[in-house]
Structure formats: structure tokens, C-alpha cells
Amino acid sequence: MKIWSVANQKGGVGKTTTAVSLAGLCALHGYRTLMIDMDPQGSMTSYFGYDPESVQPSLYDIFQQTTISRQFTHNLVRKTAVNKLDILPASTAIATLDKQLGAKSGMGLAVVNAIKNFTDEYDHVFIDCPPMLGVLMVNALAACDHLVIPVQTEFLAMKGLERMLNTLQMIERAKAININYTIVPTMYDKRTRASIDSLAYLREHFTEHLWKSVVPIDTRFRESSKEGLPISHFRVSTRGARAYSALLDELTTTISDESKAAAR
């Protein structure tokens, strides 16, 4: 089972679209895929027709338990309209976790421990992160095998990326681990100076971890979310779907190399 977290400390950069698109492609390829919505806004949950205001049980329940049984975690998972694609939904109540938990010891590993129960059931897990540092973000970063950081190709997003990498560095230090990551330029519009300049900036400053291609701006993403389907199951031939397909190929190659390196 491979665990991917999709995170950026700036909102509106395409986190949910990236997580759903990659998860949809994995399901399309026949992999048993789970999506976990860890964003209190519940965009991913809404995407697949569940209401974050009322959905129960949800991710929130994981943080209420001291021990998490296999049966318990399995009861949290819902089906989607897509074969082999399931979701563990977010409820709005997860927005209160930071206030309720503070920095309670070990709560940054609650999701890590819950995900262990899915090892035999899923090939891939995609986590959609909240756009701010807190107990949910820490859980998502602590749990993942590889981090995907979507970055909208516009100037303010560059600052968000720097904040994200700083957070990542601190979590690596706190947990004594290395988290491998890939930066993915999103919403690229070749007609705008902002996109062109931002991409040039990314290529100049973040070469090592930057995906070589881009996810273009594509109105079909909006249409597919309206239908509650990943882009891969809505229009697989669109520019956006092709871009995420290429990204998934790159990521699976990267994570395979990382696994081999770790085994050596």
C-alpha cells in the first residue's frame, strides 16, 4: 500500500483536484484506492456527494478513539460511484480538533495508526490535506510515503510553497524522517505572463523536486466535479486528464525508486 498526501499551505492551488484525479486514475488502472479527506472544508467529501455537515461516522471519529480496531476503521469508509474508489469522508467538526486537542501527545500519529488497518484492503491511499498547519496537516505528512505539493502558477503561490517546505522540514526534524516530495505546477495558462513567470521561477529555484511538466488550466475539471467523477472517468482524453496521467506515471516511478533506495 502506498500513501500519498497532497498538501500546500495555500488554498485554491488544486489540492483536491490533484488528489481526486490521481486517485481516479489509480482506480481506472484497477488499483484498490482509498481517498481520505482531511480538509475541514470537506471539498473532497462534497465532490463525491456526501455532506460534510452531516456525514457520520467520519475522520473525526478516529480522533475520539484511544485504540482503533480494524472493524472501526472499515466502518468509516464509503463507496463512490467509481469502481475500486472509496472515500473516508471529512466532517466539518474536524475543524475543532486543534482547539480540542491542542498539542496532545501522539495525536499527530492518529491517522498513521488508523491507516495501518487498511494495508490489506487498498493499493493506494490519497490524502487531501487542509491548507494550514495543525494536527490534521501533521497527521497527513507523518502518514505519507510521498508528498505531492500542487502549486498554482501565480506569484502568491510561490510564497505558499516556501511555507510548505519550511513546515515539511520541521516535521522531518521532529519525527527524524525524510519525506520525499514532488512539486506539481497547476492551473498553468500559457497565455498569461503570471503563469509563464511563475513556472520559470519554480524551474530556477526548485528544480530537484519539480515535476517537469504542468497541469494546464482546464474547465473540464469543474465539469467533472459537478458530476461527482474524477476527470479520468469523466473525459479521459482531456488535457487535464492526460497531464495527471503523466504525473501518476512519474510519481509511481519515483516512489518505486525511493522504495528500492530505502531497501538497499
Partner: peptide, 24 residues
Amino acid sequence: VMSYLEDLLLEVPPLLPDLPDNVK
């Protein structure tokens, strides 16, 4: 921030499930 992260990421001993939270 570091103190916050270290607290959150502290690995609570799994062999002490019966102890109250404030012990762990």
C-alpha cells in the same frame, strides 16, 4: 512550532494501552 510538532509526533508506547492519557 517545533515544540508543538514534537508533542504531536511523540510515539506513545503501544504496550501501555490501559494507562490513562495523562500518564502517557
